[in-house]
């Protein structure tokens, strides 16, 4: 790659974001509008607000709850999904019920689970689990069901035992579809992390941002919005990193198939 094309690509990648941020900076530089404070103030507020004990007091608890809930949902969803996907009868019985659960907008789980688990950490983790579960579960079912018949036969012919079939055939074969579910679940998890805190909490990012809004601490509120954005972007990036490693084979396979077709 020549220096010129590198420069060009860099320009194209960072050009627009730089222009947008600069535009924001100058458009609000002398803003006296209460709702749209200067970007400079927002950034100052960001440093003051989040680089203090709030990281430990609010950001970390939120992220821990998200992580615990998300991982539980993955384990549960994949486990149940494999079981349901492997049995035609079981699938027939539970599929309509699962479709119904999937269709319920996950945020309505918050008021329900408050009944059972109060407004503590358990409720929030439970909300995240019960919202993230369905996309993982249904996509795992789909992935297991879609396993190639010939590949199944091959595994049987070459004497792969149950354990080995599970790890080498079922989980690997369903992994592209599981990843689709896991990605959906991550987005839902972030939403639920935030709104479970907005709804009822005493700490957490969502709680803090709503407090700022209610007390009209506008630059701080903006800094919170930016923080949530950064959390979303970082988690999406981490997800992509893991996915691109685990599913490198799948990308390659798809690219060759597309090349042929």
């Amino acid at each position: 790659m020549s220096v010129g094309s590198v420069a060009r690509r860099t320009m194209l990648t960072v050009g627009l974001p730089v222009v947008l941020v600069t535009a924001w900076w100058f458009a609000t530089a002398n803003s006296t509008n209460f709702f749209w404070p200067p970007l400079r103030e927002i950034l100052e507020a960001f440093a003051d607000t989040w680089f203090s004990n709030r990281i430990m007091a609010d950001v970390v608890p939120s992220l821990v709850r998200l992580l615990v809930g998300y991982v539980l949902a993955l384990v549960l969803g994949i486990g149940l999904g494999v079981a349901i996907g492997s049995s035609r009868t079981l699938r027939g019985v539970v599929e309509p019920v699962l479709e119904f659960f999937r269709a319920i907008p996950p945020p309505v789980l918050v008021p329900i689970l408050i009944l059972f688990a109060g407004i503590g950490n358990e409720m929030k983790v439970l909300v995240i689990v019960s919202g993230c579960l369905w996309p993982v579960l249904l996509n795992t079912v789909e992935g297991v069901r879609g396993l190639d018949e010939v590949l199944r036969d091959t595994a049987r012919c070459y004497g792969l035992g149950r354990r080995s079939q599970l790890t080498h055939l079922v989980l690997r074969g369903a992994s592209p579809q599981i990843a689709v579910g896991a990605r959906q679940a991550l987005s839902i998890g972030i939403i639920l992390m935030v709104i479970s805190e907005m709804f009822a909490a005493s700490n957490g990012v969502g709680f803090t941002i709503i407090q700022f809004q209610r007390t009209f601490a506008i630059p701080e509120m903006w800094s919170g919005i930016i923080l949530l954005g950064l959390i979303g972007i970082t988690l999406a990036f981490l997800f992509r990193l893991v996915e691109s490693r685990a599913l490198a084979w799948y990308r390659g396979l798809r690219m060759t198939q597309r090349g042929e077709g």
Binding site: D148, E149, V150, L151, D153, T154, C157, Y158, G159, H168, L169, R172, G173, S175, W249, Y250, L253
Partner: peptide, 17 residues
Amino acid sequence: RGMAVVFQEYGRSLFPW
């Protein structure tokens, strides 16, 4: 145990991962 099979659909009988 003592039998091996080669399938017609080679693309589908090898583990792509």
